[in-house]
Amino acid sequence: MRMERLIGIMCVLADAQRTTIGALAERFEVSTRTIARDLDTLGQAGVPLVTFPGAGGGVGVVEGFKVRRDLLSTHDAAALYAVLDGLRSVDGDQAVTQLIARLVPGADENAQATASGPIALDLSSWFADGIAQEKLALLLDAVRERRCARIEYIARSGRSARTVEPARLVYKQSSWYLHAFCREREAFRLFKLKRIAALEVLGETFEPRDTPALALSAPHAPLLLPPDEDVPGTFLVELDYDAADEFALVETIDARFLERGADEAAGVARFRTDDAAWVQRLCGFLGDLAHIRKP
């Protein structure tokens, strides 16, 4: 959602002589601090911003600056279309379709040519009327309308009921998350949608808070390396498995680490890591799918 907002802000600035941070915040339904961070990001990206102090001041871009669509190469247009079409695959919002029409004219009419780029993004569920899609739709409305939600959440510590203030939806690797302010914990938390057992969007609304930046990389994430990369501090892990379970196993362990035995009926998963506790949790999660051989 932030990428869509940045593109929208850039288009507003290019089409108007000047505006105010307050007007941008109201237009994009975020806080003024969020708009200030967005403007800083655009400035660092090379957009020539200027500020106008005093009464009637505001922010704008240098005279003559325009978002020239003809500067987009075929590859650029395909990449931009892939990102926006990926957003549309989840949302289906007409505003995204209109944004595509403005930034990549003719893309939908000539979708085959535009979508022939090296990447295609579709973030929707494989299942019609899937549970994940239903949760996404409800939470997206809650984010936009600033409505509280009541969730029943399954965490490592157990199942609990929470009242949250939804701030944004986040897609990381292969899962959706809700970034929201948890009233029970009095802090922002990241909730995995698959772990939400029950969800109710409430009629109660909330005032937007200053949402902290997301740290999507764990500070102490375990290393996971090919077995031949003998990095200091890592150790070799070998897990035996039956070939019949290989398809289920690759849902958790990348196929790059799976090696078949000589008889083709069994195999071994081999990789290096630096986190013994993580290996123990992994073995517990896999259950009968794999059995630890080493260490």
Rank of each mutant, 00 (worst) to 15 (best):
K172E: 12
T20Q: 08
I35D: 03
V83A: 12
A128R: 14
Q112A: 09
D240Q: 09
A266G: 14
E134W: 11
V237F: 10
V268W: 05
V59N: 10
R146S: 11
T114S: 04
P295K: 04
V61W: 15
G56R: 10
G60S: 08
A277I: 02
L84S: 03
E186T: 07
A255L: 12
T74I: 12
L216H: 01
L24N: 03
A111H: 00
D40W: 00
S157R: 12
D254Q: 08
L42S: 06
S125M: 09
P53K: 14
Y171S: 11
R159P: 00
A16K: 15
L123R: 10
E204R: 13
S31D: 04
Y177V: 11
L80M: 12
R195C: 11
G106E: 04
V47E: 00
A180T: 13
E165Q: 15
G43C: 05
S124L: 08
F65Y: 15
W176P: 06
V12E: 15
V250R: 15
G56D: 11
T34H: 03
G287A: 02
L239F: 04
T211V: 14
E246P: 01
G117R: 08
D122E: 12
L199P: 02
A115D: 04
A290S: 06
L286M: 04
A149E: 12
A243P: 01
M3L: 02
S124D: 10
I119Y: 10
T252C: 08
R147E: 12
I7H: 01
V30L: 02
Y177A: 13
A221V: 05
R146T: 06
Y153N: 02
T20D: 05
T234K: 06
L87A: 13
A276C: 02
R5D: 09
R185N: 09
A277H: 06
D76T: 03
Q133F: 08
R147T: 09
A111I: 00
E134K: 12
D275I: 07
A101Y: 02
G106W: 07
D245L: 06
F285S: 06
R209A: 05
D141K: 10
P295Q: 09
G22V: 07
D85Y: 06
P227Q: 15
E204C: 08
P232N: 15
S175T: 10
I131V: 12
G8K: 09
V104N: 04
V231P: 01
R189F: 07
H220L: 09
L286K: 01
H179F: 14
R159T: 14
P118T: 00
E4K: 03
D93S: 11
S160I: 08
V47C: 06
G60P: 05
V250A: 01
G284A: 02
I100M: 10
L99P: 01
G60I: 08
D108C: 00
G46I: 05
L24Y: 04
G64N: 02
P226E: 15
L178Y: 02
R102T: 04
R195W: 09
S31G: 10
F127E: 10
A36V: 01
T205V: 13
C182W: 14
D288E: 14
